[in-house]
Design a protein around this nucleic acid. Structure first.
Length: 549
RNA sequence: GCGCCAAUAGCUCAGUUGGAUAGAGCAACGGAUUUCUAAUCCGUAGGUCAGGGGUUCGAAUCCCUUUUGGCGUGCCA
């Protein structure tokens, strides 16, 4: 609807031969007296046109008023244009929503934009934690929204299955394995993985292999343990993600990147660009040339690459695969790393404006109002599975999506479990279920939508009804905001508002009235559309729409 | 020290990219159920948008600065 009005204004500007700055907006005003929609077009263009805002507004209002879609166009304040839509337009648009069904909001808005969304990318050294859960909810919903808007999004998980951390994983397993066989371990190393799951893995490996592993060379044994642990943990992670309704189009393996020589390739490009040098037996990247604080090591004195090299190589593949937008969803502890990566992108003469980094802030889990303390070192963490067990997928996803990504998140475990109005996810789902129940009831009194012929939407004359239609018409614009800003939390707010409008409407009006079938049919049509929009919204957040609660 | 992120109602947070009188939810109190689901609705309150300065028709929003908090600043990943 905003787009329609925007386009109408542009047409009008052209018609009356005015130059214009297209950077004006169409909005829903906070104050209802200001109309259904308002635009600041006259204010924004004062300078360009060297005219008073009020005069510009007047010219536009006169021309636009000729259209039948607007009931009135008023000039207000310093020069705002306030539009009141003709009610006939509401009905026309409501009909479109009904016709579109589950496709409502779909468009080619993001046409031919290939978007890579890399998210979670947790080390394959343990179960996924709540930070990964937040990243999962975020990345997956962004994917769904972009998909709905005609982008070509692609979900990817970067699997760090090579390097130092993975060696430590193998060593941790080795220690637990030895313990099973009665070997004394003086002290479990601080840097090793302490979680109980390592013990469980050792136990499984033991049932599989017994003492056979002791007859291998140490290198072979560690290799076997590494692969075993990686496989098992990978499976664990996939199964947690599945419970959370998060899927990936690709798992990009670091091991594979190494095996395919991508690292060498990246290094040689950097060398060709004259951005590397040797010092103290190590190879450095002169990243200071590209705005970094200091030069970074690429190859350590021991001959091994630092983590930076595979990461550069990985991003090189992102560019080579032709993505227009490259999104990295990272934890807040990674921002020190990005300056180096960006420097490398520039050194390789790639367009670094394509690369966007999104930082998700930390999460505090609250139990009885207290922060639940977690420590990776001691293995005392709450996993994604724990969270799903505790509050359920729907509540978890809603809570993660309800806040903007850059904000710290206090996750109240008790609140998420509550099945009362305090809990917003139930509030939204309940609206859906309630509508379902009304529709069912309608069938019983032979008023089902299917039997309504020639639905007279004109019967929807109450302000509350027009407001609900208007709200639904905002939906496509909300999705665009979510996608453009990479902020799916706007959708959570939207669906809550729509649910609230429905609950209020339900309490105030009788939807089924056997004495008045025309009105009933129109209202059924309306709430059915509301149900549809709620369901699409929840679906885009990865939240279910239960028919009954 | 330097860099990044934040600071809005008692609490948790929005705030449509610079718009008109800054909004929700929760918590508190009172009320509504012969009903299409009360997991709901109706009513009552709260603000120096952390402080200061600047930019302009107009600032919670942009710039500078101070304060407070979180994180980063490895030949770890």
């Amino acid at each position: 609807m905003k787009t329609k009005i925007y386009n109408d204004i542009v047409k009008s500007l052209k018609k009356i031969n005015l130059n214009y700055n297209k950077n004006f907006g169409v909005e829903v005003p906070n104050i209802p007296e200001h109309g259904d929609f308002s635009s600041n077009v006259a204010l924004v263009n004062t300078k360009v046109l060297k005219k008073k805002p009020h005069d510009i507004a007047k010219l536009l209002a006169e021309d636009l008023s000729k259209k039948r879609d607007y009931k009135s166009i008023k000039i207000a304040g310093p020069g705002f244009l306030n539009f009141k839509l003709a009610t006939s337009l509401y009905y026309k648009e409501l009909k479109k929503i009904g016709d579109a069904g589950t496709d409502y909001g779909k468009s080619d808005y993001g046409k031919s934009q290939k978007v890579l969304i890399e998210f979670i990318s947790a080390n394959p050294t343990g179960p996924l934690n709540v930070v990964s859960a937040r990243a999962g909810a975020y990345g997956d919903s962004l994917y769904r929204i972009m998909d709905h808007l005609g982008f070509e999004p692609f979900r990817e998980f970067y699997l760090n299955d090579a390097g130092n951390q993975v060696d430590i994983l193998a060593e941790s397993l080795e220690i637990r394995y030895r313990e099973l066989h009665g070997h004394e371990v003086e002290e479990f190393p601080v840097e090793a993985y302490h979680g109980e799951y390592i013990k469980e893995l050792a136990f499984e490996l033991n049932t599989l292999e017994g003492t056979k592993l002791f007859h291998m060379t140490e290198d072979d044994r560690l290799e076997r343990m590494k692969n075993f642990a990686l496989d098992e943990i990978h499976k664990m992670q996939i199964s947690s993600l599945k419970r959370f309704d998060v899927e990936f189009d690709n798992w990009m393996s670091e091991k594979k990147l190494r095996a395919e020589g991508t690292l060498e390739e990246a290094l040689s490009y950097l060398a060709e660009a004259g951005c590397t040098y040797e010092k103290d037996d190590a190879v450095f990247f002169s990243s200071t040339k590209f705005g970094d604080e200091k030069d970074r090591v690429l190859i350590k004195a021991d001959g091994n690459p630092t983590y930076l090299v595979p990461d550069i190589a990985y991003h090189l593949t992102k560019y080579n695969r032709g993505f227009n937008i490259i999104l990295d969803v990272l934890g807040p502890d990674h921002h020190g790393h990005v300056s180096k990566l960006r420097a490398a992108i520039k050194a390789l003469e790639l367009d670094d404006s394509k690369l966007e980094i999104i930082y998700l802030q930390h999460i505090n889990l609250l139990q009885d109002g207290e922060i639940v303390k977690m420590s990776k070192r001691t293995g005392k963490i709450i996993t994604m599975d724990d969270l799903i067990d505790e509050v359920g997928k729907d509540a978890a996803r809603y809570f993660f999506l309800d806040r903007r990504p850059s904000a710290h998140l206090d996750f109240d475990l008790e609140l998420a479990k509550k099945k009362t109005s305090e809990n917003p996810v139930f509030y939204c789902q309940y609206a859906y279920a309630r509508i379902n129940s009304v529709l069912k009831k309608a069938k019983k009194v032979k008023l089902s939508l299917k039997k309504c012929k020639d639905i007279k939407l004109k019967k929807l004359s109450k302000k509350d009804e027009l407001d609900i239609i208007k709200k639904m018409l905002e939906f496509p614009a909300i999705l665009q905001l979510c996608a453009d800003n990479r902020e799916p939390h706007r959708l959570a707010g939207y669906v809550h508002e729509l649910a609230s409008m429905f609950h209020k409407y339900y309490a105030k009006y009788k939807i089924i009235d056997e004495e008045n079938p025309d009105l009933s049919c129109a209202r059924l049509y309306l709430i059915s559309a509301v149900q549809n929009v709620i369901s699409i919204s929840l679906g885009l957040m990865g939240i279910s729409s239960p028919k009954k609660m």
